[in-house]
């Protein structure tokens, strides 16, 4: 669903984290938020999902979320946030148990989400038996099972090794081709942004402001093709040039004791 961020500012006490963010996200669009550390991208994601109230401004959806969307704003977490005492299936079902659903529909939805993420044969496993990549697939299945209107991804692949990250990017693109959520993807990995997003929002530091919005004019499904390699490389370089200096400043910063 179309999502509108209107003049959102946020402060933690005297420290301004976000300053007057205006952003319209189209239905079914994937927007990546990138920026150096301290740019407030996680704060913005928290505000989008309603975990944080912005000091100023508001976030609105155009229209009503569809009736089958049980948790319109749904997160996928960097650290997976799985319950170690629940099996894969029960972790996914957690998102539905408090909703007014029949047992049959609940089972059906869980089975569909597990199938979509390739987890069907691992339904009875516990998280600690699984690799990091499979654990994050459980996190993805748990998010999809509620049929979110807006999917909020908080550095979902940054706890994974490079090869697993590649595989998960392929999975995300395959899954997104089959469902209708609007997606906001926070990352510090420019390659993920250039591969997965329709638009990349570059934020500046302290307070976070929108520095530039970069549209990537290749359909996500085609980005693996060799003829687009040069363009994607160029995009990657451009994004890097936008955040390089501030990233260097952030890198050299000493935290107060």
């Amino acid at each position: 669903m179309p999502l509108h961020v209107e003049r959102v500012s946020h402060s933690y006490g005297p420290v301004a984290a976000l300053d007057a963010i205006d952003l319209d996200i189209a239905d079914g669009e994937t927007v990546a938020l990138i920026g150096p550390s301290g740019c407030g991208k996680s704060t913005l994601l928290g505000i989008l999902g309603g975990l944080l109230q912005p000091s100023v401004g508001r976030v609105t959806l155009s229209g009503q979320p569809p009736a089958d969307s049980l948790n319109p704003f749904t997160y996928i977490f960097q650290d997976f946030a799985l319950l170690p005492w629940r099996t894969v299936e029960a972790n996914v079902a957690l998102a539905l148990e408090h909703r007014p659903l029949g047992a049959a529909e609940r089972r059906e939805r869980v089975a569909a989400a597990l199938a979509l993420t390739g987890l069907s044969e691992f339904a009875a496993a516990y998280p600690k038996q699984l690799s990091g990549g499979m654990r994050q697939r459980v996190g993805i299945a748990r998010a999809l099972v509620v049929r979110p209107a807006v999917l909020l991804l908080d550095e979902p692949l940054s706890a994974l090794d490079a090869q697993t990250r590649e595989l998960l990017m392929e999975d995300l693109l395959r899954i997104w081709a089959r469902e209708r959520s609007t997606r906001v993807y926070v990352t510090h990995n420019l390659e993920e942004a250039a591969r997965l997003a329709d638009r990349v929002v570059v934020l500046s530091r302290r307070p976070g402001r929108i520095r530039e919005v970069v549209r990537i004019d290749v359909p996500v499904g085609d980005r693996g093709r060799p003829e687009h390699a040069a363009l994607l490389f160029e995009m990657h370089r451009r994004l890097w040039s936008l955040i390089r200096d501030e990233a260097a400043t952030a890198d050299r910063e000493v935290q107060p004791v």
Binding site: L51, L70, Y75, A81, L83, L94, A95, E97
Partner: peptide, 26 residues
């Protein structure tokens, strides 16, 4: 982070206690 996850999925407080806090404290 498990509590925050449960809140983000809209679990009511008593479910957070029964399904996250108590099993996690066992």
């Amino acid at each position: 982070n498990l509590i925050r996850m449960a809140q983000s999925f809209g679990l009511p407080a008593r479910d957070i206690v029964a399904k996250i806090l108590l099993p996690g404290a066992m």
